[in-house]
Design a protein around this nucleic acid. Sequence first.
DNA 1: GGTCGATGTGGACATTGTCAACATCGAGTC
DNA 2: GACTCGATGTTGACAATGTCCACATCGACC
Lengths: 217, 217
Amino acid sequence: MWTLSTSSLDRLADPETAVTMRPVSTYHHGHLREALVAAAVELGREKGPDGIVIREVARRTGVSHNAAYRHFADRDELLREVATYGMDQLSATMLKRVRRVRVTDPVERARRRLREVGKAYVEYALAEPGLFAVAFYPVTLPDLSGPYQLLTDALDECLEAGFMSAEKRPGAELPCWAGVHGFSLLYGSGPMRDVPRRQRDADLAQLLDRIEDSLRA
Amino acid sequence: MWTLSTSSLDRLADPETAVTMRPVSTYHHGHLREALVAAAVELGREKGPDGIVIREVARRTGVSHNAAYRHFADRDELLREVATYGMDQLSATMLKRVRRVRVTDPVERARRRLREVGKAYVEYALAEPGLFAVAFYPVTLPDLSGPYQLLTDALDECLEAGFMSAEKRPGAELPCWAGVHGFSLLYGSGPMRDVPRRQRDADLAQLLDRIEDSLRA
DNA sequence: GGTCGATGTGGACATTGTCAACATCGAGTC
DNA sequence: GACTCGATGTTGACAATGTCCACATCGACC
């Protein structure tokens, strides 16, 4: 029953339930909550927030409509779960890219790290426009501290390396965030969504150049 | 019958139909299309894209459900109409603010105009978050040439005035647009929506400062 | 005065979120 | 080892919605 691409569950199943895994009788599912979230994530990935439909989630999980109400108060709570999943993936994507930077020169490393933070943000938003939209769905709003902290760290490093002027540091997060966030939406689901990849990459590079220019000491 | 706040119809009713206005028998409405769009705009203003519900629009217009189908192929077409209305208002807001600039020094005037373009964009997005969301709803996407042209003009002026370095001019629209667009969403319906007005204004001022810094020769 | 196409109406259907009542199962208790 | 009880699923129902079809009504033109 309930076949699942385990990969998409990696971050969902907590170790405890993972141990208790049993093949399941037809009635009590055993891991319904996780299975439902996994199905909801898949729907969100395919069709965005509006595509996350309780009854379809139940159908894909091979369970009756209404079963979800034993695990989520309402649709919004399920949405919030998917949003958190997306935000976690965004954090992970950013962290991975930042860690890949192998430069010793402090200034160059700070610049590169800030750039990778921005690139990763956009990369995830464009790779998963549906989940990104869910993560920023007005009713949803999961914890943002992961991505925000990575940006803060990158900016601090720019300051320490002397790449950024000190009087620009306070509140510098916002202009940077707004830039990549706006870019993500314009190119991910907005009016620029059909711009070919080459052009889009060039535009992103230019955006990151301008952000650097704006911070430079 | 069909009471309407005429003010909200100003930009909708075309002169021709306006002349033909008649008090109407109960059946054939006479200006149903305009009345429906007006009601849809009001709903969009109150609750955003998801709030624009055909049956509610019909109810508010005092007409049967289904009546709308004589004027719009489906809900999306009605949405598109509202989106166009919002985009027109955005253009108007921007134009108004740009025109208010009364500075003679060319450099200072170019800077101020670019700034007002950005301020107006954010101002409208924050004043009408629902309509702004409709205007950028993925399925919608009305004509953007109005706002875009105003930005282009402002940047051209910055170049001519010598405030912006020439090699940064090509493609300069994008970074600017992304910045104000991202800001609008983060503060209008996103994670920053509860930031108090004072703080928000300061953040916007800083964003515009950084944009100027990024373009400076 | 009569006809006909445009415009509204009423009814129907499938889909959805959600509630209430009922069914089933496994973990403790005697 | 049988029993009970709370957690977990299921069935059925309801109202709201987008959309389709058949029918009603009206005004412009012959």
